[in-house]
Computed example of a mutant assay.
Amino acid sequence: MIKGRVILTVAAVLAAGAMLGGCASRPGLDVLAPSLAEAPGATPHTVLVATTRARDPRPGVLFNGERSAKLDFATVTLTVPPTHKQGAIEWPKQAPGNPNTDMVVHEAVYRDTDAQFVADLNAQLAKRPRGEKNVFLFVHGYNTMFSEALFRLAQMAHDADATAVPVLFTWASRGKTEDYVYDNNSATAARDSLEHTLTLVAQSNAEKVTIMAHSMGNWLTVEALRQMKIAGTILPAKRVGNVILAAPDIDVDVFKSQLKRFGKPEKPFIVIVSHDDKALGISDFIAGGKQRLGAYNNDKELVALGAVVVDMTDVKSDGDELNHGKFAQLAGLRSQLRQSVEQNVTSSGGKVPETVEFGQIQISGVTPNFGGF
């Protein structure tokens, strides 16, 4: 009887999460249908994809939420409209979308082998000048459709005005609130594939690699990096830009044990937290009341373990009642954040301050190389 009550309670919590997030519109299944239309002022972005999702034969879908038996690849070119607002995703109201007002896919090509993925990556890197041949690899979180992960990465790359090649590692999330356990197992099963993807990126001509993970994707990312550290295959520090953990859905105690085994990194992990993150509150409940890293409030302890803590609690989250997607706003603030850190260092006589205030954002454990965020 008690077991039945627990199941009903968890179901009720997940349903509440669905209702809380219900105000945010989600794309249709065919949102990735390619468009041949062009728009003056629309900005193109080419995203390389590595995935453990299964291919989907339906037009405009590409990959679904079921697990593939092997790592798969794709290269997608899309555009961001001239009317784009920072932090937003302009979903097509109907496929294939209007590039004047919507984020629109123009070409999507499957790739079958490691060699094809690396070749496409090197082709994109060759378009960048020396010193800017970098990669930005994004790992999404729970309850995320392929199209949502793809467009979110394009939004961040665009808002940051980044020159790095965007690479999406997307694992088999079904994109449904009620599939939390399935998603968690899919993320766990994808650890070796993420490790393999990072190895392929390391084999490319990329000068530096920055990794950003969101929500449940952080569990997968930290585990993959931990595996590589133990195996001695981790990327050398000089080739790592930053490792950014946004709203990490990781048990705090588990993260502490991971870092102790991993060792204090040469470049500290950047942990983005928000104490009003309702999605992580739900995850806390499901996990038996164990606080998640993305809502942890002991910044000093995280700094001591080897982290820079970016606290976004006081930042207003437009259109996100769960307060779980605030990290996406940081892309548009990248230059200002870097300048703020540099100014604080200058005003402190060259010393790096323990904390930096930037509007409603507080940064603890600042280091000199944080300016590259």
Score class of each variant (00 low, 15 high):
N205V: 09
G175I: 06
G141D: 06
A202L: 10
K208V: 12
S204Q: 04
E207S: 10
Y180G: 02
N185I: 14
Y182R: 11
L194I: 07
K176A: 13
L200M: 08
N184S: 15
N205M: 12
T170S: 15
K176C: 09
D159M: 00
T199E: 02
H196V: 05
F151D: 01
V167A: 01
S186D: 07
S193R: 08
K208Y: 11
N143T: 08
Y182M: 11
T163Q: 14
A160L: 02
V181R: 13
A187G: 08
M156H: 00
A190P: 07
S186R: 08
A206M: 06
L168V: 08
P166W: 01
V181Q: 14
A206L: 05
Q203F: 05
A160N: 01
T197Y: 00
V165Q: 00
T177P: 07
D179K: 12
E178M: 15
A154R: 00
A190M: 07
K208D: 10
K208M: 13
R191V: 09
N185D: 15
A190I: 05
S193T: 09
W171P: 01
A162P: 08
W171N: 03
K208E: 14
T163F: 12
A202E: 11
F169N: 01
G175D: 08
Y180I: 09
E148R: 09
N184R: 15
L150T: 02
A164V: 08
L198I: 04
Y182I: 11
